Computed example of a mutant assay.
Amino acid sequence: MPGVKRLPTSERRKQIVNAGLELCRKEGIASLRTEKIARRIGVTPGALFRHFPSKSAILQAMAESLLERLEATVPDPVVSGWDWIEQHVKERVRLLNEDPDVRMLFSEGFIFALPPEAREKVHLAFARSWEMLAENIQVAQKEGRARGDLEAHELGAAIVGLVQAVLHPPLGDLTDWSNPESVWRTAADLIGSKASRGAGG
């Protein structure tokens, strides 16, 4: 297209990925077409393929971008146990509130549309997150801060459910519920030991 500004490859790739994410978020995954992405950023469809060999490659890059944002919320390894769980809950809720694109990682339609390699990366990322959560719940149980009458994976399921509830109405539409502090207070009440609940979580 005449007058199109030439961007460095890394910037153009990022622009293409962000345009694809915006298109999916606003119109649904079924609307993702290379010509629509090209039109959105003002280039020819052929220009897209100088940066990505196929639509599948664009989807792969889109998934990787979302995973980077999600994994950036993982608490620092020096934090563990109860404090790790608190940071995990608050950061995930904050991200889901502030970055609507990341919500697509929790959409079956989006995940199903990904190429197999990207789908596997998403599943592995969620599995790692689940393992870290369970490990830190076990630490919190040994600390006496998390209740010991349930297994770590059962408490983990409660936490994951609370965090993901912000994605769905009617809870997701409640301002107080979408607040990271509010979600954490509820999570702490559910998984905390009697001693920790008595001490205010």
Rank of each mutant, 00 (worst) to 15 (best):
E131Q: 06
I29P: 00
S107I: 00
M104C: 05
E154V: 11
E64Q: 13
A187V: 13
R13I: 15
R185G: 14
G3R: 07
M132C: 09
S31A: 14
L133K: 02
W184T: 06
P45L: 08
E86R: 14
M104L: 14
F110M: 06
K142H: 12
M62R: 02
H168R: 10
Q60M: 05
K26G: 04
R103L: 03
V166G: 10
E151Q: 13
I16W: 03
M104N: 12
H51F: 02
R145M: 03
S56H: 01
V163A: 09
S31E: 09
N18I: 06
K194A: 15
I58E: 04
V74F: 05
R94H: 13
K26L: 15
A157P: 03
R69V: 07
T34Q: 14
H153I: 11
D76P: 11
R69P: 05
P115K: 03
L7I: 06
L150T: 09
A165F: 08
Q138R: 09
P2E: 12
L48Y: 07
L48S: 01
I159M: 02
L59M: 14
R103N: 13
A199M: 09
S129W: 00
L150Q: 13
I16A: 04
A188R: 05
T44S: 14
H168Y: 12
E11K: 14
I58N: 05
V102F: 08
Q138I: 02
F110A: 11
T175R: 04
L67E: 04
T175L: 15
E181N: 10
N136T: 05
G156K: 00
V139H: 02
L96E: 07
E143I: 00
L21P: 06
V160K: 00
Q60R: 11
K5N: 03
V183M: 04
N136M: 02
F106G: 01
H153N: 14
R25A: 10
K194C: 12
Q141S: 07
S31L: 02
K121A: 15
H168W: 12
G46Q: 08
E11W: 10
Q138S: 14
R145W: 00
P115Q: 11
D99W: 01
Q87L: 15
W82N: 02
V139G: 05
G20F: 03
H123N: 15
A152Y: 02
P2K: 11
K5A: 08
N179R: 06
R103F: 10
A19V: 01
F106A: 05
R13S: 11
G109W: 01
I29G: 02
G42T: 11
V74Y: 08
I137K: 08
E68S: 13
S182K: 00
G201N: 04
P169F: 06
E181K: 05
V183K: 02
P75C: 10
S178G: 12
H88D: 14
G156C: 01
A152K: 00
E98I: 08
K5C: 10
